[in-house]
Every structure is written in C-alpha cells, then in structure tokens.
Amino acid sequence: MAREQLLIATLVELADNLVDNFDVIDVLTMLSDRCVETIDVDAAGVMLASPGGELQFIASSSESMRVLELFQIQVDEGPCVDCFKDGLAIVDRALTDPDDRWPRFSPMALALGFKSVHCLPMRLRGRTIGALNLFRTEQGSIDANDIALAKGLADVATIAILQHQTSINARTLNDQLSKALNSRIIIEQAKGMISQATQCDMPPLLLG
C-alpha cells in the first residue's frame, strides 16, 4: 500500500474508533504498526501513564520493542521515561555503550539491535498522557516529515484515548444529562412557586 493510502486508512480507522468498538490497546497497537509501515523506523511502541502517574506498557510493533519498554519501566530509565517526565520530544538520539544518560537502557537496546531512538510525547491540553517510542537499527537523522507524520498519528491517538470513555457511554450519559436537566428545571420551577407563594425573594446564590 502506498504511504498516503496507509496513512488515510489509519486515520479513518482511528476516526471510526472514536465512535464505537473502541479498544485502547487495539488502537495503539495499530498506531505502532502503522508507524513502522509508514515511516523509516524499525520498531514502535506506546506507553501510557496510569491514573497514578506510573508509566505502563500498552502496545508495541515487535517483541524486542516490548522487552525494551518493559525494561524502561523496570529500571525507570530510557527515552520513554525522559520524554514522559519532560514532555519533550527526543529526536535522533544515537545509542552508545557506555552511555551517560541511560547507562542501563542503552546496552540493552544495542544488544537487541537498535542503534538510535526517537520518542514523542503524547500531549493534550498541556498534559502528557504517555509517549510514542520509535527505534531504528541504524544511526543518522530521521526525516522531518516522518517525525511530523508520527506526531500527527500520536495526536489523534491521544484525542481518541481521552474521548474513549465518553464514546462508549454516550447513551447512558445522555439519559443522565437529560434527567438531570429535567430535575433541575423542576426544582427551579418549584423555587419560583415557593418564592411567589411565600413572598420570599429568590436567594441571590440560587438565581442562576
């Protein structure tokens, strides 16, 4: 499939997922796979923060990426950990052994065949909810368009995740909203009736 077609297919799939049958892991696994298919990286993976702020492994395009993501969490060190903490992208970071920045992560990644890493924060409204890891088996700089593309995919996945809860509960929530609105209307009408019958003014706090 051509790159543009793949991209469009990905976006349509993500958009569909905004509505129903949403599964966070499916969406992020797809995001990882598509990153490898559409841009010049050899492995991709996503980590998300739990409500308590701890990074969790969510998805990866390959077994070696999965191992490295779990390793980063275990030793609390690596590109994804930094990217999540700082909220800043890491681009074209060559791995070396020894490595001052990641003394434990780098040798492990090199052993699994990776030579350079990139990591993009998944951010929305100032909040970092996770990070997208992109690993390459070669050193050298990644194409700026590739980074932009990966960033676009990560942005959409972020929005999809944050809207996830809303989508699946739409009917229930709408019923609740409608009931709540109705109860509130009745309460306000009753306040008006009492106010008139007793000639007590509406308390200012309850006016609106």
Partner: peptide, 19 residues
C-alpha cells in the same frame, strides 16, 4: 455557572403559575 444554563425562565414560570 456564568454563561451556562440559565434557569431564570423556569423560576419565573413557577412564580407565574402561582400568580
């Protein structure tokens, strides 16, 4: 809150119902 639902109309309807 400010700029959201305005329930004054419903309060007024309650008052007019009694009036």
């Amino acid at each position: 809150g400010e700029g959201s639902f305005d329930f004054t109309t419903h309060q007024a309807a309650g008052m007019v119902a009694v009036q």
